[in-house]
Design a protein around this nucleic acid. Sequence first.
DNA 1: CTGAAAGCGCTTACAG
DNA 2: CTGAAAGCGCTTACAG
Lengths: 333, 333
Amino acid sequence: MKTVTMADVAQHANVSKSTVSQYLNKRFDYMGEETKKRIEEAIKELGYRPNILARSLKQKSTTTIGVIVANILHSFSTQVIRAIEDMCHESDFHTIVCNADDDPIKEKKYIEMLRAKQVDGIILLPTGDNKDLYNDMLKEKYPIVFVDRTVPGVNIPSMLLDNEKAAGLGVQHLINKGYKQIGVITNVIRNVTPRMERLNGYKKTLQLNGIPIKEEYIKSLEVSKIKDGLREMLSLENPPEAILAGNDLTLIEILKYVKEKNLSIPADLAIIGIDDVSFASFYEPGLTIVAQPAFEIGNKAAEHLLNKIQKRAIPEERLVYRFEPKLIIRESC
Amino acid sequence: MKTVTMADVAQHANVSKSTVSQYLNKRFDYMGEETKKRIEEAIKELGYRPNILARSLKQKSTTTIGVIVANILHSFSTQVIRAIEDMCHESDFHTIVCNADDDPIKEKKYIEMLRAKQVDGIILLPTGDNKDLYNDMLKEKYPIVFVDRTVPGVNIPSMLLDNEKAAGLGVQHLINKGYKQIGVITNVIRNVTPRMERLNGYKKTLQLNGIPIKEEYIKSLEVSKIKDGLREMLSLENPPEAILAGNDLTLIEILKYVKEKNLSIPADLAIIGIDDVSFASFYEPGLTIVAQPAFEIGNKAAEHLLNKIQKRAIPEERLVYRFEPKLIIRESC
DNA sequence: CTGAAAGCGCTTACAG
DNA sequence: CTGAAAGCGCTTACAG
């Protein structure tokens, strides 16, 4: 099947390629009705489909952006992607999604491939370990936005949760409920913003309330080690009565442990999670959690990036955009 | 910042564009060591990054495929996308993901945009309502694969769960456990393959076991109406004792109802779901479910599509590829 | 072993 | 109101 090109349409309609191009780009200012109709018909008859690649080459814009997440299987990533997609769709942009698996080498490869494909900008949940590359893009003024994390020493705008506040909200709620022995478990992915800030929020809130910080109550573990860590913590002679789960994956591991040991929530252990999870409302007991506005974050990231790409002014440009966590109280504490 | 092109590299290295191109494409057969080194250095010094767009235009291949799902927020879609992405990554292909929201108009728009962008093939969770368009692509031999659904009258290869068997496994398990009054709830998205086949599986299995089919035990409802439907069903003078949830969303609604009414599973109501859900294992009681191999399905779809794109022979080509459901027994029935 | 030239399918400034 | 021509940044068949 020979592909139909603009030249074919032009010939068929007895006009020049230029005129067809004008038609396609809706520059009708000076086009005769007659010409318009002929072109329209030729397009229909030949089943012409424009090749956007060729246009992109000429116009130096692909109306496509890249999104690099750690793992599309995480609900936060999914929600961010969906928000970005919707936002882009309104502006007739497309998104290429990549999973870097929190691997700086994969991340670098993806950034290079995306740029080779001439995407107009990139939204990145950065691993944090390609600083030179990030800074190069910054220097070139290549449109790029970070999500979920900031990278020290890299002045790229970042959209992320007010993590300190999120952890603080959770801990304060526990304290208000009368708990004093409060543990926290996060899962370790290097020294990444959310984890560090959430731990800070935890510590600060305890201090504000005059509760001493016990290192035995704080654990950062790989997902597969979380249950062991929790067992250890609960075997202390003075174990925590309540626990803050640093994110959704941690919460799930904790709930698995709860089931295995047949613990009762909140009697044996009060629980509060960060990140909304699908089962929070109908789990028994309902889970109190601190939600982060993933859609808002994705929206803002896309909006910001599109503004940059289209060289529109960015209202109150900042380096870090913080989003408000929201405490949703149920029965788990 | 002026972009560096191949011509710049050629000039800098004192060779022709052709030679640089050979170098980039690793056709070293006849290239002098000296030349090679000069080009390499020129590329480094100038910070040259090839423009794949230009190559794609010439080569008529973008090493990019499109994936159109109903909604990336569904875990099935997410898993399929991730599997496709991984598969593509191995072959240095990229994927553009689009959400059609089960809307045929959006679907059509996306297909056209993707083709305008010259993607080499498309993986589609079809709405089913663009038959002419599907058939056009088939006629042109454009590489395309369906996932999750088949479309009657459209001979495009489809990768999907053996839905009848999936529902059958679930119902048979309930029957083996001694249940005879078994209801089913699915959520309605037009007359789409999975729903129809699952209902068939439900009915056939009942019949095979000599259990009469009661229409009052069968409901297909929008997500927001599921709780109402369940209440109705359970208010029958002879209500079902067990219920099959047609998919993850339905299961979640049922569990919400269970919590609201403080029902006990399985004493008041036995439950079995189709689709693996994150909370199945630690929900109390553990949920018996029929899982579908989403990753395998995504893998196979990508493999098939890449084979077609690269004109490789397809081992035992078929029109419908069925994937095995797997019963995972826990405590909910 | 390397280069000149044509061409991929568009857009756009300019001429008329 | 419309067309001829140059150019976007590559690849490739061919010549030498």
